[in-house]
Design a protein around this nucleic acid. Structure first.
Lengths: 198, 198
DNA sequence: CCCAACGCTGACGTCAGTGTCAGTTGGTAG
DNA sequence: CTACCAACTGACACTGACGTCAGCGTTGGG
């Protein structure tokens, strides 16, 4: 079907769009900016995408899926590593992915919401699916005594939000960005919160 | 100076803009939408604001300032309540403010970044000032043994991000929105993280 | 009662960005 | 060599949101 030539051009356009969106923000970015950065004529863009929102949605949805796909279920079978180590490994993959694609972090976690109602709904579905999966994981953890008691939706909201903000700040340079340090910081927070033991 | 008549109209326009932005998102919202909701002519808008970005910036900056202003420094003098109670009281004020202004939460914490570079910088300054203040508070806490050891910038990033996400989800209905439950959830997270004690 | 100052109106010209499409290019198969 | 086709071009017509401004009420102090 899709020739390799075509696939390549599509990639180039996606990469250009990613950089433009990260630099100028969705509102100020124009299709002209994207094709200029790509060294390609205006019309070419429309051979690959419907419009600005389409390419934005492709970037965001794809990155979201990659992040979600990098999370592996916790394996509780006898020979498997300890759950805590599996959690850490999951965090490492997510953080690694984020640091490898700083612009996509900015776009996806920083500016994607509120751009367009239709896109918002798509993202909400993604987010909901991920949330449901993690909720089940957490429930199992609670039953095994690995996760403390409490409303899982609230705990998840805080944990995911905290991780997202940390990644945003890390790629934005507001916070030192060493991968291991970031993973450790999140693990410490999950294990002990912020305050000292009473 | 500013007559009460003028002040009232300005308020009406701000309220209308708040609702329009929350419903349609910044991109799709137009000045026409705002004046229509306000029952006022197009030209009137421009007697009060420069353009769409100006009114958006006013909403966001003002709400950000109100949130920041609701946070009181921890009083360590002899007669004062325990620091943990003061922390909880601060959380209660922030959560209460958020639940009282759901649309502003959506706008300010959900869609404000990436709209415009100039606005981003303004918000970054706000955020930076708040962050610095909280960093100092946290440092004192560490010295007193009330806050665990660790990189304060990372801890703050996670904590603030977690709170913001929780508020976004609460006003968006993704999560049950009882004020006390939200405050408790955050306090629990700050005190003990997510995982059970090893 | 008057009129000046204030607040408001809304039709209008402008323009940045859009999406199209008739035409060009260049690689490849016969 | 030629014929073909997919990929690409970029000038063009169009759109819709913008910001303005000359003129119209209204209000309240003198």
């Amino acid at each position: 079907m899709t020739s390799p030539r075509r696939e390549l051009r599509r990639r180039q356009l996606l990469d250009a769009a990613r950089d433009v969106f990260a630099e100028k923000g969705y509102v100020a970015a124009t299709v002209d900016d994207v094709v200029a950065r790509c060294g390609v004529a205006r019309g070419t863009f429309y051979l690959y995408f419907d419009d600005k929102l389409d390419v934005f949605g492709a970037l965001v949805s794809d990155f979201f899926a990659r992040v979600a796909g990098s999370i592996r279920p916790i394996d509780l079978s006898p020979g498997a590593p300890r759950p805590r180590e599996q959690l850490r490994a999951n965090l490492h993959r997510v953080v690694g992915l984020a640091l490898a694609e700083p612009h996509l972090v900015t776009i996806t976690f920083g500016t994607a919401f509120g751009v367009d109602p239709a896109l918002d709904e798509r993202l909400a579905r993604f987010y909901g699916a991920l949330s449901t999966f993690m909720d089940e994981t957490l429930q199992t953890g609670q039953q095994l005594g690995l996760v403390r008691a409490g409303d899982r939706r609230l705990m998840l909201s805080i944990a995911i939000g905290g991780l997202q903000q940390l990644l945003r700040d890390a790629v934005g340079g507001q916070v030192p960005g060493d991968e291991d340090a970031l993973v450790d910081a999140v693990m410490d927070f999950l294990e002990g919160g912020l305050l000292a033991r009473a």
